[in-house]
Simulated assay, not measured.
Amino acid sequence: MTTAHSPIRVGIIGVGNWARHGHLRVLTLLPQYHLQAVYSERRERAEAAASEYAISQVADSVDALVNNPEVDLVVVLNTAPQHEKTVRAAIAAGKDVYCEWPLTTTTADSEHLLHLAKDAGVRHIVGLQRRHAPHNRYLQDLLQQGYVGKVRSVRMHVSMNYFQALRPNALRWTAPEENFSSVIAIYAGHFLDMLFTATGWPVKVSGLMVNQFPKVTIKETGEVLDSTAPDQLVLSGMLEDGGVISIHIEGGKRNGSGVQIDITGDQGDLKISNRSAFGDVGDDYVIEGAHGDNLPLQALPLPASYERLPESTLPSAVLELAELYYVYAQDVVDGSHGAATFEDAVRLHRLLDAARDGHRTPLK
């Protein structure tokens, strides 16, 4: 059992690319955590992770890991179609549980997990880490402090080079729509949550999803797969106070990809940009603004008070993940609920359902 003075003992389920690139490095960086146990369907991956990150226990099964009395927090990092069953097992074992986004492949399954977690009285966290990033907390404060006045419009464009018609074998599971693992399910989910945490959530939307890559070729083998998953999302709508939103998210952009956000208010403007939608070392968000009329945008450097992680050389996308773990560790100590939860995941599922269905109002 963890206390305010002991690290949270973590059991990892799934040792894929993001687990290795992100979670294991973050949990090693933060002193609030201790990597206790690991499980993978491919035992050699679990053993390699255990060796590299000094994890003392390699579990033989999901059930063995979730029922391990030395594990406080189960972290679910296998593929999206496996999440529901794995999270359910953790909840049944009475364990606090972190699950990557997407929580599950359907809204109904995610709603069911939320109910199970509430009934069991366990803490639940979903991997929507971008809302907790320093730039987004700063943006939220600027808006709440009235930097732009009343928000009149919000425009966001997010694009990335990958998720093209030619994909590595590691992304073959993104092609079937039923896996809910497309660029829209994953990236739109992350960026919509990030944006609306800062601006407030829309009360009505109209959306369009398009698949422009109906055939996907696997780079390593030349195998051609049918792809039914969308790779473009166009979303328009309205915020509660009347601000208009316009959002375009697309995969497979050959050049000039990244993130551009423009927020127009009745007293000023903000622009948020990043050359990368994922974020390597040095791919940091730039916030520019002007408060007044017909003025040039000026850089608004991130105040040092928004930095709270230990020094490291980790990529910016990985540091965003560290922010979520930082907030959750503080929640455990304080009894607070700052980290993104299954409730946030369900709200995001419903928003994406509305976009897929074309039009749904209201969203509340």
Rank of each mutant, 00 (worst) to 15 (best):
H337E: 14
L324T: 11
R275H: 12
S276K: 06
A93T: 03
A133S: 15
I91V: 15
I261D: 01
K118C: 02
A198Y: 02
V66D: 06
L352S: 05
I91A: 05
L208K: 09
L324F: 05
L142A: 02
T86A: 11
L314Q: 06
T106R: 14
S227R: 14
L351Q: 06
A354M: 06
D60M: 01
R254D: 03
F213D: 11
A108T: 09
D293F: 13
L300C: 04
E177Y: 03
V210W: 02
W101H: 15
D262S: 06
L171A: 06
I13H: 08
V234L: 11
S246D: 15
R356C: 03
N211P: 04
V203G: 04
R25D: 07
N255K: 11
A46T: 01
V97P: 03
M209W: 06
V244Y: 06
H135N: 08
K253R: 15
E70K: 12
V203S: 04
S236H: 09
L239A: 05
A299C: 01
P310Y: 07
G237C: 03
R45D: 06
I55P: 01
N136H: 12
D226M: 00
V151K: 02
I218R: 02
K271A: 13
F180Y: 15
M1I: 11
R350M: 13
E220V: 06
T104W: 13
A355T: 09
D280S: 14
S181K: 05
Y187T: 14
I55Y: 01
A229N: 04
P303Q: 03
S336R: 12
T217G: 06
I184N: 06
R9C: 04
Q145S: 13
Y39D: 07
D193K: 09
A133P: 03
V87I: 14
C99T: 15
G146I: 06
L113M: 10
R131T: 14
T104L: 13
P7R: 00
Q82P: 00
N255L: 10
W101L: 12
E320P: 00
R45F: 12
K253E: 13
A329Q: 11
